[in-house]
C-alpha cells in the first residue's frame, strides 16, 4: 500500500466515522432542535402555563378578530395544523404578511384558560413565489383560495400566461 493510498483510506475512514457520529447526534437531538411546537404536539405534551415557548402553524380561516382593550389593539386568532387548533391572542404589531391561512410562529405562553398568549408574532411564508396576476388568475378560476391553504402544484401555474404586464414597479 502506498503512502497516498494509506492517507486516502485514513481520510475516508475519518469522514465515515464523523458522518456516523453526526447522524447519531442529530438523531438524538431531533426533538430538542424544534424551533416551534405545532398545535398537535401541544395537545400531546403541553408546556405548563407560564412556560415560554413558540407555537407554529397556520392562522385558521375565519378566526381573526381585531378588537381594542383599554385603548390597545388586541387580535384574537386560532393557530391550526389541520388536526389540532389552539386559540391565541396578541397585543402587539403584526407583521405585514399576517393573514388568515398564513403560517405564523408566535412566542408566548399558555394562559390558565387554555389559550395561547403571544408576546411576538412572526410570519412564516411558504416557498412559493408568484406575481399578483397569477394569484388573481388562480383565484378567478376557482383553483386556489390563499386563505384555505397552500397553492396547487407549481407545474400548473409557474408558466401560466396572464394578460397583466409582467413589469414590476
Amino acid at each position: 500500500m502506498t503512502r497516498t493510498r494509506r492517507r486516502l483510506l485514513l481520510v475516508g475512514l475519518c469522514g465515515l466515522g464523523l458522518a456516523t457520529a453526526t447522524a447519531l447526534t442529530l438523531n438524538a437531538l431531533n426533538s430538542n432542535l424544534v424551533f416551534f411546537l405545532t398545535p398537535s404536539q401541544l395537545a400531546s405534551k403541553a408546556p405548563p402555563p407560564g412556560h415560554t415557548f413558540r407555537l407554529g402553524g397556520l392562522v385558521a380561516p375565519g378566526s381573526v378578530v381585531h378588537s381594542e382593550v383599554d385603548g390597545k389593539p388586541l387580535v384574537r386568532f386560532a393557530v391550526t395544523d389541520g388536526t389540532a387548533t389552539v386559540k391565541a391572542s396578541f397585543g402587539g404589531v403584526l407583521p405585514d404578511l399576517f393573514r388568515e391561512g398564513q403560517g405564523v410562529v408566535a412566542l408566548g405562553a399558555m394562559s390558565p384558560n387554555g389559550s395561547f398568549h403571544a408576546t411576538q408574532v412572526l410570519a412564516k411564508h411558504d416557498e412559493t413565489y408568484m406575481p399578483k396576476s397569477v394569484e388573481e388568475a388562480l383565484k378567478k378560476k376557482g383553483l386556489w383560495n390563499p386563505n384555505d391553504g397552500p397553492p396547487p402544484p407549481a407545474s400548473t401555474w409557474n408558466t401560466l400566461a396572464t394578460k397583466a404586464p409582467m413589469k414590476g414597479g
Binding site: 442529530l26 431531533n30 432542535l33 424544534v34 424551533f35 416551534f36 411546537l37 405545532t38 407554529g56 410562529v105 412572526l122 412564516k124 411564508h125 411558504d126 416557498e127 412559493t128 413565489y129 408568484m130 406575481p131 397569477v134 397553492p151 402544484p153 407549481a154 407545474s155 401555474w157 409557474n158 401560466l160
Partner: peptide, 20 residues
C-alpha cells in the same frame, strides 16, 4: 428535518420549482 421559520427550498432536484 426540523420546524424552522425559514421556508423550505423553492428549487429542488426532484420537483417543479414553486416559483413563477
Amino acid at each position: 428535518w426540523w420546524n424552522t421559520l425559514h421556508q423550505p427550498d423553492t428549487i429542488t432536484v426532484t420537483g417543479a420549482p414553486t416559483m413563477y
